[in-house]
């Protein structure tokens, strides 16, 4: 029996969220006395895969099929299901990305398994049960969920697990493929349009995020957000009204009806901190709020705050950040 981790590539490298999943998977394997294998598909280079040894992975099954460079849900499911069968995997670990949760849901049906998404802790396995904690109510609570089926599928929330780094360990990389039918490509994308923010840091993967709200008055002022983000190596985000008015693209909208992020650092500029906005960012480790209104509700959820006009405060931050030695 083994623990199988699915790792996602990004421009040839492995996403940090997947390194977290790999670290998670190998700790589960150790607890269960099993081995941790990874499966990778498409656009990842082999050297990066071998380095998964640092996260405790002993072997990587790699399907380099050129048709799978882009995510194709059913084809990915077929490959991972075949890998799970080959390895006799009883625990499957994903990162809680759109890809990970999609593939996990489909596999839960195919393998008749129990699925928990948004997972924030390693499993507790006392008394033969298998219980994980997951984030619920849009970050406002946690639920301990028991996975009762024979096969357990877990999607790990970003930034909940530290990446283990046992430098020097390498994983062996084996070529792997599964037989794919035409039907597996029925929902293949016709076209993909990337609208990366400047600097190319993907918002869900980002360690640091600088976010702007209606207080910034208009898209012409977004250089404040972008320049601060660039100075500290952050991705950019925004509140809902900002993307509703097309000041910023939709995939930057965080909150209850946007995406949920959990970076180490979230800097909110000119955002009031409505409960629906907090729902998307409340599991960030450190929250900084810059708002001219001392009564803005966001200060209650913040670790650091500055009451002041963004147009005066942010340039000072940019200057100070540029002065930091890297």
């Amino acid at each position: 029996m083994s623990v199988l981790v699915f790792v996602e590539g990004l421009n040839g490298e492995i996403k940090n969220s997947s390194l977290e999943a790999a670290s998670y998977g190998s700790q589960v394997a150790t607890a269960l006395g099993a081995t941790a294998t990874a499966v990778a598909i498409g656009d990842v280079n082999e050297a990066a895969l071998a380095r998964l040894g640092e996260q405790g992975i002993s072997k990587v099954l790699f399907d380099a099929d050129a048709r799978l460079k882009q995510f194709v849900a059913d084809a990915y499911v077929a490959v991972i299901a075949a890998a799970a069968q080959k390895e006799n995997a009883k625990v499957l670990v994903f990162s809680n990305t759109g890809i990970g949760a999609t593939v996990g849901s489909k596999l839960a049906v195919r393998l008749n398994g129990s699925l928990a998404t948004n997972v924030t802790t390693l499993p507790k396995t006392e008394g033969g049960t298998f219980t994980v904690t997951r984030s619920v109510f849009s970050g406002k609570a946690f639920a301990d969920v028991e996975l009762t089926a024979d096969v357990k599928i877990i999607a790990v929330k970003k930034n909940a697990i530290d990446i283990s780094r046992n430098s020097g360990n390498t994983a062996t990389v084996e070529n792997f493929s599964a037989s794919l039918a035409d039907a597996d490509f029925a929902v293949a994308p016709k076209e993909t349009v990337m609208q990366d923010s400047e600097g190319g840091i993907l918002l869900p993967e980002a360690e640091r995020v600088v976010s702007g709200g209606r207080g910034l008055k208009g898209p012409e002022n977004w250089h404040l957000v972008e320049d601060l983000a660039k100075a500290i190596g952050a991705a950019t985000a925004c509140s809902k009204p900002v993307s509703d008015q097309d000041w910023r693209p939709h995939h930057e909208h965080v909150g209850q009806t946007g995406i949920t992020i959990s970076p180490n650092l979230y800097i909110a500029i000119g955002i009031s901190g409505a409960i629906q906005h907090l729902a998307g960012v409340n599991s960030s480790k450190v929250i900084v709020v810059i708002n001219k209104d001392p009564e803005a509700p966001f200060f209650k959820a913040a670790d650091y705050g500055i009451v002041g006009d963004a147009f005066e405060v942010v340039p000072k931050l940019i200057e100070a950040a540029k002065a930091l030695d890297k």
């Binding site: 406002k140 089926a149 599991s283 913040a302 670790d303 650091y304 705050g305 500055i306 006009d309 931050l317």
Partner: peptide
């Protein structure tokens, strides 16, 4: 295939530290 054993709430934040806007660089 899953059952919820218990709910809990996140720990409360320790409180916000305010920084003088005149000296905003201190935040960094």
């Amino acid at each position: 295939k899953t059952s919820i054993a218990a709910y809990s709430k996140p720990e409360k934040k320790g409180g916000v530290k305010m920084i003088d806007p005149e000296n905003a660089g201190e935040l960094i």
